[in-house]
Every structure is written in structure tokens, then in C-alpha cells.
Write a protein that binds this DNA or RNA. Sequence first.
DNA 1: GCGCATCGACGAACAGTGTTCTGCATCACT
DNA 2: AGTGATGCAGAACACTGTTCGTCGATGCGC
Lengths: 247, 247
Amino acid sequence: MSPTPQERRAARHQLGTGSGAPAGRRGPSGGRKKPITVDAIVSTAFGIVEREGYEALTMRRVASALETGPSSLYAHVVNKEDLDELLIGRLCAEIDLPEPDPATWRQQITSVCARLRDQYLRYPGISRAAFAAAPSNLDTLRISEGMLAILLAGGIAPRTAAWAIDSLMLYVNAYSLEVSLAGSRLGRGDDGWVVSRDELLRRFAALPDTFPHTKRHATELTAGTVHDRFDFTIGLMIDGLRNRGAD
Amino acid sequence: MSPTPQERRAARHQLGTGSGAPAGRRGPSGGRKKPITVDAIVSTAFGIVEREGYEALTMRRVASALETGPSSLYAHVVNKEDLDELLIGRLCAEIDLPEPDPATWRQQITSVCARLRDQYLRYPGISRAAFAAAPSNLDTLRISEGMLAILLAGGIAPRTAAWAIDSLMLYVNAYSLEVSLAGSRLGRGDDGWVVSRDELLRRFAALPDTFPHTKRHATELTAGTVHDRFDFTIGLMIDGLRNRGAD
DNA sequence: GCGCATCGACGAACAGTGTTCTGCATCACT
DNA sequence: AGTGATGCAGAACACTGTTCGTCGATGCGC
């Protein structure tokens, strides 16, 4: 049997599981148009998330899109958690990393973060799955390696670089999740506490006097697009890095 | 009737809903030992999350802890989402904010973040609910106000301060969520990709040569406790702020 | 003192979810 | 041709959040 789902998952985490069975290919595949493969599952899953958001991604939904029952998926995927992991793995794999250049490391690291963010936002809510993904996953590790290379080329001390990468990736995840959540709530109407900027200004103005600073600086508080804030934060962290220099 | 759950929620978001009914108190309360109140619901919910984690917080679980059926809760709480909001509201309300002191603003803001983090970690996984909480909630707004006061006292420009607060709170949330998730996975055994530092070092060493930097700096990558990383990131952001000064 | 309307609490049920068990039809190999 | 294994699929289980209709008791007006 080609590697069982459990073995696949273990391999993704570089865990030696005694090298899977010799893989005596069979294949019933009956009158099926297309046999169910892991890739097919992941692809249709991506389609669902892209169109309807992560919340709509259920095993049944994937199965029916593949014109089969839910149980059929479990021959290729250990879990829903496993499927999530496969998704973020493929998502990370599609991110290409620049050749480290000491002259432009600042811009390079920013660009990688932005690309990661855009990839997350393309599949709304998927960053929720990214939170659960352990750092031992090979695909996410590839990105860490790339970012580490860039920061080291920029002259950042190894320990500082390593920790900064964690911070950056965590922030990118969180940012993407928040934006996705706000967007989905906005999308489905939802009595919506997600409001326009004008409405937000009005509410700040109506605040009791226990919120003096918030009232006074309401315009600054609501200024800028969401992406402006993203760039601001990434810049903040990188600036902090520069001043730390070679530690 | 005392304010319906919907009105309560609206009030929490400073939304004028025509001032609720005159509140003609009744109160059946039958032979009940204790009538079900919003506070009772929130309190038992906190107990469940503290003991068993956020994943164990279901309406049925809360109801049975209150020795009643699930439907009874919906007279006091509009939603599970609403319950989540109440939880993070109460959680935020318990955080006390220091009087802004221009001399120690750096330490003050760090302290508030740490207190927020500890509060989140005390109820594992609850930060997941915090992500969904809109910034229009009065309790979270109180914390924003407090942090804003500190940063302004520190001489940070209003717009910079406002954006930095968003960044900080988002990071604290994300950090707490990640730590909680890792902890819960560790707790329930779980074939666990959450591994010890030694095991992580071993895996890094066994990595293919496509990961040169990761292999070389494995010790730095795995160094430090989780809280060290937290302090590092917060410090990173604050340092970035100082250099921006009054903008 | 009595009836009435009102409102909180509740049991049962519905539409979903992830997951597993069991059987089925089909293929490769002897 | 027979046989064993293999991937597929249907039904079912234990859950989830949420709603409907009813029960019970209460406070008020008379």
C-alpha cells in the first residue's frame, strides 16, 4: 500500500517511521472518472476556502465536491487537522524566497511578510489553521530558513534573528486572521459591530468622559487603511532589529 | 422586562437602542436555589475554561454545570459568540491600569501587556475568543484608552501611539493563543508534534542540506523560554517606537 | 381571596459537525 | 478462474449551537 496517511504526516514532520511499506501499487479506481488523491482533496479544499471562506471548509463539503461520502477522505487524510496542515503546507510552498542580498535585506524581509499575508488573505480565515501548525512542519520551516538567511545576511545576530522570525510570522498570522474575521462578519451582515470609519468616529465622540484620549484622538485612531497598519508594525519590528545590530 | 440579551449586547457596544423597557421586575425563580443570571453564566464559564480549556466550553457544558438545559441560557445570552464577548469583557475589566508616568512609560506599557498575557494564559485558549471581539467593545476600549494614555505621556505621537496599541494587543492575543494551543496539544498526548527542546535539536540536525542556516544555528533557534520571546518582541516594538519619537 | 396574564425555565428536536464501522465492488497476482 | 487485498461509500455515533412549544410559578388588579 502506498504510504498510509499517518506515515505521510510523520514524514512531513521529518519523523523516521521505519520507511513505509514497499508500495505494491494496486488501484481499484473502478469506473471513477478520477481516483481520489491527496492532491485532489487539497485542491478542492483550497477552492472551497477561496470561494466561501475557511468556516465553510468541512469534510462533508469537500467530499460532496468530490462526489463521494465523507468517509472516503479518511483513506488519504488522517484528520481535519491533517487537512489543515496540508493546506498551509501547500500555501507556504507557493511562496518563493529571494536570494539574500545584504544591501536590501530590509526590503526583502518586508516583501516576504507581505507575500505571506497576501497568500493568507486570498484564502480567508485559513490563518486560523496556520496557528495550529507546528513549527516542525517542513514547508513552514522552509520559509523560516529563507527569512533566517535574509536576516543573517543583513548582519543580525543569530539569536536575535531567530526570535524576530518567530515574532514576524506570528504577527502576520494574527493580522491575516483578524482581517479575515472582520471581513467575513462584514460580508454576512451580522448586526455587525464591524462598522464604517464614519460610524466609528461617531461612536468615539459619544464616549463617556472616562475615555478622554480616545475621544480627543479619534481621527488618528481610525486613520489609515488596514494595510498601512500592517506595514507600520512590520517596520516597527525591523527598526528595532537594526538598532540591536549584531547584538 | 429587564433588558433583553440583545439590548445588553448593544449597550456594551455603545449603541443607542432607545433605552430599554422600564424594567418591571417579576421573577418566577420557582424553587430554584439560585436564579440563572448573566453573571452566574459567565462565572461558571470561566471556571470551565480555567479547568478544561476553551475547547471544552460549550453551551451544554455550561448549562449542565448550572443544572439546567441548554435552552435556558438563551434567555440571558444571545449567542455563544455573545458569551465569548462577555468573557473577554470581564477578563479585560479585571486588568487595572497604572497612572501614566512619563518617566517609566516603557516599563508601564510592558507591564500592561504582560498582565494581559497572564490573564489570557490563565484561561487557556480564550484568546481565540478575543480575536473575534470587535474593538467597539467598551471593556477592551478601556484598555486601549489606558495604553494610549501611557504612550502619549511617553511623548509618542498620537497616530503612532494608536497604531502601536493595535499591534501590541494583536501580538499579545496571538502569542497567548499559540502558547495555549501548544500547551493543550502537549497536555492530551496527541502523537504530538509539540516536542522537547532536545528532540527539536535532534530534528534540526537531521534536516537536509537545503536548510543550512537552520542546521547551523539550531541552538539559537531553540534558545530561551517562551516568555523570553514574548519580552523580546514587546521590547522590539517599543524600541521602534522610541526612535520614532514624536514623529 | 381569586383569576389572569406574563415571563423565566425547560425538554425535545433540528441541522449541522468530525469520525468510525462495516460491507461492497473492483483490481492484481497465482 | 480463483483469491486476496484494496480503495470506496453508506450508515451510524457522539457531539455541537440553536429554536420551538410548553410548563410552572409569579406578581398584579380586582
